[in-house]
């Protein structure tokens, strides 16, 4: 769980970094997503990254399967529940990793349909755009169209919020699973985990919000 979790954390850093290119439009309003489209094109057309993508999917699937098995197995370990559950000793999101993971999975299905499936297979809602003679997908345009509806923005925000709580527990827990027991490092990793979760969530939520409010695009 920890190992696959950390690999997905690394992916989130790349994902948030590439997508943050949409904010280039803020500094240069005529930019219209050029930096983001080029970055997305680079990610989609580089062989090494496409190979890494297979690893990423393997990691996601493994994490999901491990998570579902773990949750199901652990549920069986207490056949008679308590009349008064013990909740004071742990955080609600630490106890709800299975639920939060499932919410993220549901969000992921919609998210992959919106962008990944469109770019790779269906071409749904995609216009071509040409920079310096190179034709590529206008992913920026697809984001703008997708995030023109409030319900999509709200679903994305809720998906990201689930991700925040999932990471708030998962980040520091992953290192404990891998055996980090130095008190100073654990304290550091715990703070880093909360900080990382917050930054990643804010960056992700800001994207659909910026489009729907007309800040970019």
């Amino acid at each position: 769980m920890g190992l696959t979790g950390i690999s997905l954390v690394l992916f989130l850093i790349v994902h948030a970094g590439i997508n943050a290119c949409v904010f280039a439009d803020l500094a240069d309003p005529g930019e219209n997503g050029e930096m983001f489209n080029k970055a997305a094109h680079f990610m989609g057309s580089t062989v090494l990254i496409r190979i890494t993508e297979i690893g990423l999917f393997a990691g996601i699937i493994l994490h999901i399967v491990q998570g579902l098995l773990l949750t199901a197995e652990n549920k069986k370990r207490r056949n008679v529940g308590y009349a008064v559950p013990y909740t004071a000793g742990s955080k609600w999101y630490s106890r709800s990793m299975g639920l939060l993971g499932t919410l993220i999975l549901l969000f992921l299905v919609l998210h992959l349909y919106h962008f990944w499936a469109s770019a790779r297979f269906t071409g749904r809602g995609l216009e071509p755009v040409t920079y310096n003679g190179v034709e590529m997908h206008n992913m920026f345009g697809l984001m703008k169209a997708t995030f023109s509806e409030w319900w999509v923005v709200i679903v994305y925000a809720l998906g990201c919020l689930s991700l925040y709580y999932h990471l708030a527990h998962g980040f520091q827990s992953a290192f404990k699973t891998l055996g980090v027991h130095n008190k100073r490092y654990n304290a550091m990793l715990s703070s880093l985990g909360y900080g990382f979760s917050a930054v990643i969530t804010i960056v992700f939520i800001l994207m659909p919000l910026s489009f729907v409010l007309g800040w970019v695009g």
Binding site: L70, N74, Y86, S94, H169, V180, K183
Partner: peptide, 28 residues
């Protein structure tokens, strides 16, 4: 017994205040 998910409930209720950092040590 079930598998540990590092929720911290054990440490919070332990009458002898055994630290959960022991679990990370065990994993190591």
């Amino acid at each position: 017994f079930g598998a540990c998910t590092n929720t911290g409930a054990c440490e919070a209720t332990c009458p002898k205040e055994i630290s959960i950092s022991n679990i990370a040590r065990l994993n190591h």
